[in-house]
């Protein structure tokens, strides 16, 4: 890395104050890709924040329908949460495996991640189906509207994640750990971890606060 400083200065200036660090030039593709995806994730989180805000505003508007504490089942949520946390872990294992080009552990990690994601989705789907069957669908009240949208939006993201995950497995199968494949795996991992962060918000704000209230 080039440092330009007036020569005399450099010594009298051990902390490099007043030193202009020359920009070294364009970053590598890996960094560029991941950074772009990072920016995308931030924008996705802003989108989630709108649904959170809507939930905060509408959560009291039950219009004579059920309140959160009447319909939330903590046990299910706990299982869902554990699934997602474990899947984040296994996803991390899969990325390490990809980095050291170990196919076996990569497939294993991704498969477990996928299964955990699917379990999460099944539980969520059954919760939704059950609510709708009891007449507590999203059209029942503004509260349920906000609840279904926020949780469902996260669920849709997880579904998209599962689709992506399977595509990535197929791609490693077909193409091996090519540089571009590795970059995509890195983005996928970021995506999956970010969804977990959103879920932390969901279970805290929606389920736990909702049943505490």
């Amino acid at each position: 890395m080039a440092m330009t400083a007036t020569a005399g200065h450099a010594h009298a200036d051990p902390h490099h104050i007043g030193v202009v660090i020359e920009h070294p030039g364009p970053a590598s593709k890996r960094i560029v890709t991941a950074y772009g995806f990072w920016i995308f994730l931030l924008s996705d989180i802003v989108m989630f924040s709108c649904f959170f805000a809507a939930y905060a505003v509408l959560s009291g508007q039950t219009a004579g329908g059920p309140k959160g504490s009447e319909i939330f089942e903590q046990r299910n949520v706990a299982i869902e949460t554990v699934c997602l946390l474990l899947s984040s872990f296994t996803c991390g294992m899969a990325s390490i495996a990809a980095d050291v080009r170990n196919r076996f552990w990569f497939y294993l990690g991704m498969t477990v991640t996928c299964v955990l994601g699917l379990i999460f989705l099944v539980i969520e789907f059954r919760e939704f189906a059950d609510l709708v069957a009891r007449g507590y669908g999203p059209s029942r009240s503004a509260f349920l509207t906000a609840f279904f949208s926020l949780v469902g939006c996260h669920g849709l993201h997880v579904s998209a994640g599962v689709l992506w995950l399977l595509t990535m497995m197929a791609q490693v199968f077909a193409k091996g750990f090519r540089a571009d494949v590795l970059r995509r795996i890195m983005c996928f991992a970021l995506f999956w971890h970010a969804l977990d962060i959103v879920w932390v918000g969901v279970f805290s704000v929606v389920y736990l606060l909702g049943s505490a209230a």
């Binding site: 809507a54 505003v57 508007q61 219009a63 059209s139 009240s141 503004a142 279904f148 949208s149």
Partner: peptide, 16 residues
């Protein structure tokens, strides 16, 4: 889908 974010009925809120 008949949600109630901004409707006048069922607790929706136009101002949101």
């Amino acid at each position: 889908l008949g949600f109630h974010f901004f409707t006048n009925e069922a607790g929706g809120n136009v101002m949101m």
